[in-house]
Amino acid sequence: MTSDELTPTEQMVLAHVKSGSAFQLLQLLAEEDSAVQEEIADKSFSLGLRVAGGMQRSIKVVNGRISPVDNSVSGSGVIFRFPTYSQLNNLLSGRKSRMIPIIKTFKAGGIISSFKSLTSRIPVYMNAEGTFLEDNFTFITRLLICAALRGIKEVAENDPYVSDRVAGIPDGIIALHVEGCSELEARIKKHGGSFTVLTGRDETIPNAALTFNSPETAYNLFTGKINAVVALGTSDVKIRGRIPMIQGLFPILDRLSFYMAIK
């Protein structure tokens, strides 16, 4: 299925999922990928995405870090303004896209070219194979986990298809652990209708926890190589704590896989 076949609402959700995950991944790449680090060293800029009458979000590059900013493009040196979500989806899928770059600084050319080279690093990791995959396995798994959590957040917050389900999920924090690999810990927090993805370690006891028995299990699950239901039944993935919170994620994950499969 391609994004052209989606309804306008699905286009909107897809744009949130794709841009949200991409910005989340750029943030992590700035911590580990030398090409990204080189690209942003000594640079300070902000680039925004805005859809007419809808979403606006940006990334800020400063002091060798990349931070996603939700709901704002203020301070952006360049804002890509799209007439529709479908045009933004075209850009995010690497297709020809109709949009107007709003230039706020004379450095705009440099910002756009930096943004292109930063985003070009994402598929290097997300489609990695062979020795690159082996050498960067833990980091790639971390990227997959964080992209999935970000995807959950975007679907849960924006997709009316799951809004009744989301309303039924209790508030609190779900932690993802990988046995023997504390750097892979990540969390997602639900508070009312909004979700926050928290990367990195945290000592507070979450309300529910999902524990993968190895980084391989996490990698295989998030790349669709193993079935989540089987992994749960065989206890390769353990669930603890307030189970309805985790169960509440399943319909959101189903919707997320629907969006992830869109070309």
């Binding site: 239901v229 089987v230 749960l232 065989t234 206890s235 353990k238 669930i239 189970i243 169960q247």
Partner: peptide, 16 residues
Amino acid sequence: PGGIYGSKAPGFVIPG
């Protein structure tokens, strides 16, 4: 679908 469904599904107890 799901292997075992509803309230008898593994996820309702503690798999393992």
